[in-house]
């Protein structure tokens, strides 16, 4: 599971990869957390807050983007950054998950939105899952 950032004229382009769709979803959450506050998820410690997300979407790409958008909304609402996801249910179009976050005073960067632009979840020939995600900054 990994995330990498690439250049975009005004925003942030991130590539996420995982050995499964589940890993891809987690990579997306961690990559986004790292934009909000660099390295915040690098340390394994206790979490201050737990939130629940339940979503349905038309396809895996929409499910990933909508899931990240929900995580982002909770981040702003709770002034927390989410680093851990426990999936209760995950299919290609349906997710129920508990997310665990750390309270923080201020973010490094403000993400306005997780966009659908360029997002396309694909399973590669090497059996890994990947997509690009553009964050509106």
């Amino acid at each position: 599971m990994k995330f990498q950032y690439f250049a975009h004229t005004a925003d942030i382009r991130m590539k996420v990869e995982g050995n499964s769709f589940k890993e891809l979803m987690v990579a997306g959450v961690l990559g986004m957390a790292n934009i909000l506050k660099e390295d915040i998820c690098d340390t394994e410690d206790s979490f201050d807050i737990k939130s629940n997300i339940a979503l349905k979407a038309t396809d895996p790409t929409c499910l990933l983007i909508d899931f990240l958008s929900e995580v982002l909304s909770h981040s702003y609402l709770e002034k927390s950054i989410y680093c851990k996801v426990i999936f209760i249910k995950l299919t290609a179009t349906d997710v129920i998950a508990d997310i665990y976050g750390k309270k923080t005073i201020g973010f490094d960067e403000e993400i306005k939105a997780v966009t659908y632009h360029e997002a396309e979840v694909v399973k590669t020939r090497g059996n890994t899952w990947e997509t690009f995600i553009i964050f509106d900054i």
């Binding site: 038309t58 929409c62 958008s69 909304s73 659908y116 632009h117």
Partner: peptide, 22 residues
């Protein structure tokens, strides 16, 4: 964010296809 999601889901009802989901 809320309305892009809602409008994307509603597009097929109006026979609309777009080259980019955004």
């Amino acid at each position: 964010t809320d309305y892009i999601r809602e409008i994307m889901a509603a597009m097929p009802n109006y026979g609309i296809k777009v080259p980019d989901r955004e």
